[in-house]
Simulated assay, not measured.
Amino acid sequence: MLKENSRPVRKVFTTKAGGVSRGPYASFNLAEHVGDEQQCVQDNRKRLQRILGVQHLQWMEQIHSNTVQEVKAVTEEPIAACDSIVTTLRGVALGVLVADCVPVLLSDHEAGVIAAVHAGRLGARNGIVQRSVEAMRDLGAVPERIHALLGPAASGRNYEVPEAMAADVEARLPGSRVLTDKGTPGLDIRRGLLVQLRGLGVHAIHADPRCTIEDEQFFSYRREGVTGRFAGVTWLPDV
C-alpha cells in the first residue's frame, strides 16, 4: 500500500506569485522567450525545482504543433520543436508553459508513463492530445488507466474568436465551439479536449475551471499582451 505522502505521480500548476521577475513578468515568469531578463527566469526555474524537490526539470520549445517527443535522457536544453513530451524516466519533471493555452498533464502510473502537453488552439485542433495519448500507449500506457489533469486556461465565456475560426476548430475538435458571455462566437478548448479524451478511452479526467483571462493569479496573453508564462509540471518520483 502506498503511504499517504507517497503519491505515484505528481502534478502541479504554478501561478504568477512567488518569483523575482519584474514589470509585466512579475513575478514568477518561467519562460525565456517572452522578453524577461534571463537571470530572473533562471532564478525562478531554480526556485521551482527547489520547491518541488526535483533535480531535473525538462522544458520544450513550444511551437503550436502536434509533435510529440519522448524524453529518453536529461538535457539542459529544451526539447526542440514540439508541444508534448513523454517519458518513463523517474525523477525527471516535465514542464509545459502557458498563458491562456491549456496545459494538459497525463499519467499512467502503473505503466510508469507521463506526459506534459501544450494544447493551444492550433495544437489542440491538430490532435496534440490524441497524439500524446498514442505516444504514451506506445510506451505501455493503457488509455483506460490514464489520468488527465487540465489546467487553468482561457474559458469559452471569454475566448472570443471569428466565426470561421470557431467553426474550423469545432470541425476538428468537436465540443470546442461555444458562445461567449457577449453572445459572440467563442472557443472552449478545455471542453473540446474533454470530449476528445473520453473518445480515446480516457475517463479519469480532472479540469481546473479557472479562466486565465479573468483570473489575475495567472499570466494571460489575451488580457495583457506582453506577459509571462506559468507552468504545469508532472513527474514520477524516484522509488
Rank of each mutant, 00 (worst) to 15 (best):
K3G: 15
E4P: 08
V9C: 06
T14P: 06
T14G: 05
G19W: 08
R22H: 11
Y25F: 15
S27K: 08
S27E: 15
F28S: 07
L30E: 05
H33S: 13
V34T: 14
Q38R: 15
N44V: 00
K46F: 05
L48K: 01
L52Y: 13
L52I: 15
H56V: 08
M60Y: 07
Q62E: 12
I63Y: 08
N66P: 03
V71S: 08
K72W: 08
A73W: 06
A73T: 15
T75K: 12
E77C: 03
P78T: 11
I79S: 03
I85M: 04
L89N: 14
V92A: 01
V96E: 06
L97P: 06
V98P: 00
A99Q: 07
V104K: 00
L105R: 04
D108T: 04
A115W: 02
L122C: 04
I128H: 00
V129L: 12
Q130T: 14
R131G: 13
A135C: 08
D138E: 15
D138V: 06
G140Q: 10
G140I: 09
A141L: 02
P143V: 07
R145I: 06
A148D: 13
L150N: 01
L150A: 03
P152N: 11
P152C: 10
S155Q: 09
Y159R: 05
V161F: 01
V161D: 06
P162S: 12
A164C: 10
D168P: 00
V169I: 14
E170S: 07
A171W: 03
R172E: 14
L173H: 00
L179P: 09
D181V: 11
K182G: 12
G186A: 03
L187Q: 01
I189C: 01
R190F: 00
L194K: 03
R198M: 11
G199T: 10
I205K: 02
R210S: 09
C211A: 02
I213K: 02
I213F: 05
D215C: 02
F218T: 02
S220Y: 00
S220E: 01
S220T: 01
Y221P: 00
Y221A: 10
R222A: 07
G225N: 09
R229F: 06
V233M: 05
T234K: 03
L236P: 00
P237A: 11
V239N: 14
